[in-house]
């Protein structure tokens, strides 16, 4: 069973914040869902390999070549929440 403080720790890792009641709800829901996942415990997978990709081919590689891109200008202008000159700006990192 996941306790509220575990949920709080996970939230911190995920950079999310919740109110107390939200934490309670999440703990309940997560317990319900994780409980549902317990049915996997019944399967013996000790000799089974993990599948992390749906395709079974070697990863492709590209030539070491530069392709110019100029997306930064419009990104800074149209999308950056805050910027100064050519920099993205964030609250001071202490």
């Amino acid at each position: 069973m996941i306790q509220k403080d575990t949920v709080a720790t996970i939230a911190k890792l995920a950079r999310l914040e919740f109110t107390e009641p939200e934490l309670m709800t999440f703990a309940d829901q997560m317990n319900q869902i994780l409980g549902f996942m317990e049915q996997l415990d019944g399967l013996d997978t000790s000799k089974i390999e993990a599948t992390s990709h749906a395709v079974d081919i070697p990863g492709p590689m590209r030539e070491d070549r530069v392709v110019e891109s100029n997306v930064i200008e419009s990104l800074l202008k149209e999308n950056a929440p805050d910027h100064e000159d050519n920099f993205f700006r964030v609250p001071k990192v202490l």
Partner: peptide
């Protein structure tokens, strides 16, 4: 760099 209340990326 620039405004000292901020860090620049």
């Amino acid at each position: 760099f620039g405004d000292s209340d901020f860090s620049h990326v």
